[in-house]
């Protein structure tokens, strides 16, 4: 179940709060963009082990896929590099059809 909480909250503040509550948390960061990517480099999304997320890496295009990957990262503790773009069939399916490509780094907060 993926539910977006209050979008006006700052993801890093939320991450600290969630960790304080004893939740497992992953952080996803846009580290590179090409073309007309919807969110700038440095944009962040935080995800907990229940699939709750807050923030944005693409304005809604690929968040679902990032959350799924983040759950694996929370499990394994191994950071992961994701790439989405129009050339990528998965990305097309999840909706980054705006002509841009992005790379997203997903890591667990320890």
């Amino acid at each position: 179940m993926h539910t977006a909480k209050d979008e006006t909250r700052d993801p890093l503040d939320a991450a600290e709060e969630w960790l304080g509550e004893g939740r497992s948390v992953a952080l996803a960061t846009v580290i590179e963009t090409w073309g007309s990517a919807p969110r700038p480099v440095g944009s962040q999304l935080v995800i907990d082990a229940e699939g709750n997320f807050l923030g944005s890496v693409s304005g809604g295009c690929v968040e679902g896929a990032v959350v799924t990957e983040a759950l694996d990262v929370i499990d394994s503790g191994q950071p992961r590099m994701l790439e989405f773009g129009v050339a990528d069939e998965t990305a097309w399916r999840v909706g980054l059809s705006c002509g841009g490509r992005i790379r997203v780094f997903v890591e667990r907060l320890n």
Binding site: D13, A15, L109, N110
Partner: peptide, 28 residues
């Protein structure tokens, strides 16, 4: 990323001070 780094980032941001996080993309 270590939780202590996250806390330090947030403390700097609350204090309106500039901070940069340097991440090694090989191991995070």
């Amino acid at each position: 990323m270590d939780a202590s780094i996250l806390k330090a980032i947030n403390a700097e941001r609350r204090g309106r001070r500039a901070v940069i996080v340097l991440t090694d993309l090989a191991d995070g």
